[in-house]
């Protein structure tokens, strides 16, 4: 294991995230990959509305802040204007799988050559822990005080599986960040996503099962256990689609 220090592409400022929130881990992975690929100078990131709304302050590349759910559309605008730049979005589950479902599905089906980092922590963190499209059956949230009842609130969305059915998708993979090994896997998956984009081979989405200790009412360590035992049981980790959609520069 080499020396460990903050990647250059992660700005040297404190984050606003709650203690133990795994957003920070995923931010670091993205920044490490940007460093390793040497693309900081040519990358534009797009932030969502949600807890990571201020991620534009944390990444050292150029950044844009999108309105709620529209990050894939904003990223499309960037990428179409500048096809040789690297464009990624960083979105939560409410942003990507509720209000921004249309933008997500259509960016995917167009094979838009962008990479989406999708943080699934089964709740709306920023607004205080309401039911998300990914909230598990029975899960208590601020707006499902008796637990999510699938008869009335419906079922959680398995985004990676859904997008894997679309021809424009080069990579749909679900990973988690509950221990060092899963973090290493998550990094490999995100790297793959950027690699597909650099080769102009299609849309990539990496879904990361993450924590929200604050709104789950758990210690950060217990929250990691919940990801491993409960979230990964409903949202199986793995690759759901992988392969170039097109081969412009291959």
């Amino acid at each position: 294991m080499p020396d460990f220090q903050r990647p250059k592409s992660l700005c040297d400022i404190p984050t606003h995230y709650c203690p133990g929130c795994t957003h920070g881990i995923v931010h670091r992975l993205v920044a490490e990959i940007i460093d390793e690929l040497g693309i900081e100078n040519n990358t534009v990131g797009v932030c969502p509305v949600g807890c990571s709304v201020m991620a534009y302050d944390y990444f050292a590349c150029d950044m844009m802040e999108a309105s709620h759910g529209r990050a894939p559309a904003v990223a499309t605008g960037v990428k179409r204007a500048l096809p040789d730049k690297v464009v990624f979005t960083y979105q939560g589950d409410g942003d990507l799988a509720a209000i921004g479902t249309a933008e997500t599905v259509h960016a995917a089906t167009r094979g838009e050559n962008i990479t989406i980092i999708f943080i699934n922590n089964t709740t709306y963190g920023m607004t205080g822990g309401q039911m998300a499209p990914t909230t598990l059956p029975g899960q208590v949230t601020q707006t499902t005080p008796y637990g999510r009842n699938t008869d009335t609130e419906g079922f959680p969305v398995r985004v990676s599986e859904m997008l894997a059915t679309l021809s424009g998708v080069a990579l749909a993979e679900r990973v988690a960040v509950y221990d060092p090994k899963s973090v290493a896997n998550a990094k490999k998956a995100i790297r793959k996503g950027f690699d597909f984009q650099l080769k102009k081979q299609g849309f990539s989405i990496i879904e990361v099962l993450s924590t929200c200790p604050t709104n789950w009412g758990m210690t950060p360590v217990a929250a990691l256990d919940r990801v491993k035992n409960e979230l990964a049981a409903y949202y199986p980790l793995g690759v759901f689609k992988e392969g170039a959609v097109r081969n412009f520069n291959a």
Partner: peptide, 22 residues
């Protein structure tokens, strides 16, 4: 032993690990 497993899980990137002799 500078395995950096602590640092890998740190959400704040607050841990730095240096190996022997460096």
């Amino acid at each position: 032993i500078a395995c950096a497993l602590c640092a890998v899980m740190c959400p704040e990137c607050a841990i730095t690990v240096k190996k022997e002799g460096k």
